[in-house]
Design a protein around this nucleic acid. Structure first.
Lengths: 184, 184
DNA sequence: GTTGAGACTCAACGACTGTAGAGTGAATGG
DNA sequence: CCATTCACTCTACAGTCGTTGAGTCTCAAC
């Protein structure tokens, strides 16, 4: 009968996911340096040595935990600028923990900085392509930077004026500003 | 004859300043956690114990080293919005190391986060006052967040599209966007 | 010149960290 | 039923950190 619900492979998979999930949460809350293998292990109800056995090193655990989603400040697959502006609201909503972990570490962990810079650069290039005109790259970079700043202020720092504001309200207030950057 | 150029008090003052300067530089480069009392002491060519003797703790060293300047993304003493927009260029120039240290630590060091949040909140309130209309506070917060994001992308992350851009060009490209936030 | 203060260093502590290796016990496969 | 695999734990090492207390050496005051 297809074995107990917990076969060996299945148990392993679940433990691994439990560790990754705990890691994401703690990395997101404290950043790379202040996150401890022991803390992750405790949150996952597992021995610290097991974390090492599965992921090899703290750095690799971070990479695995943070992998997958893209940085949302202004992502979008070659969508026209107008369409993108219409979707800012969604991009202002709650972020995946992996993204928060990445952003929280980016100013103090060189690898995270490199990763974020790369992703943002890609968004800039893509957006500049959609804009087209003269100094499109600069203006695209400012659009991405704006989204980055608002996201940080809203989600990571918790500016009081933004803390209570709904994503929709923020998006609405922000749209003209971004449009003026896109149009030039 | 007013004594040799290095009186006792004078020597002490200089050593203290040398430590503070080294601390500012290293805190700015690595953030709070990754900065080591030993590294600061080495950079100041001093024994680590002396740093403790002068400042009591790493946390106090940080506070003293980072004290003084205000967070510049959008500071200004009750100046009218237009005047402020005219001065964005200056605010986009190179930052004081103390400010960089503060910003670099703000996502991973709770005390730095609290400090930055407080200063930015104050700027928001001040700016909202200058704007006046309906949802002035939200729009002021978005202006401050925008400056924050551009500053981070430019000075801390080094987005390639912004890295080479002069402060003046950035300011010029950014002005319409900020104006649209200020006007509503 | 002697004394005392004060700038500064030496050596070490205890705590915490990432990490490694040997071990345990259950479940798997023959 | 037995041998082996494998998820998992125990224990410990080596390094680094913030921090401390006792010391040294130099200069100023009497």
């Amino acid at each position: 009968m297809e074995g107990t619900p917990t076969s060996r492979a299945e148990r392993r998979r679940r433990t691994e996911e439990r560790i990754l999930s705990a890691a994401r949460a703690i990395f997101a809350e404290r950043g790379f340096q202040r996150t401890t293998i022991r803390a992750v292990a405790a949150a996952a109800e597992v021995d610290p040595a097991l974390v090492m056995q599965y992921f090899g090193s703290k750095q690799e655990l971070f990479e695995q935990a943070v992998r997958i989603p893209s940085i949302p400040p202004l992502d979008g697959e070659l969508e026209p600028v107008e369409e993108l502006l219409g979707r800012i609201g969604m991009k202002m909503g709650p972020l995946p923990q992996a993204t928060v972990a990445m952003m929280r570490s980016m100013l103090t962990h060189p690898d995270a900085a490199e990763e974020v810079r790369g992703k943002l650069d890609a968004q800039v290039a893509q957006l500049a392509d959609a804009i087209g005109s003269g100094d499109a790259e600069l203006r695209a970079a400012l659009m991405v930077s704006t989204m980055l700043g608002v996201t940080i202020a809203h989600q990571l720092l918790g500016l009081t004026a933004l803390r209570d504001a709904s994503p929709e309200r923020i998006a609405e207030a922000l749209r003209p500003s971004l449009r003026s950057l896109a149009d030039g």
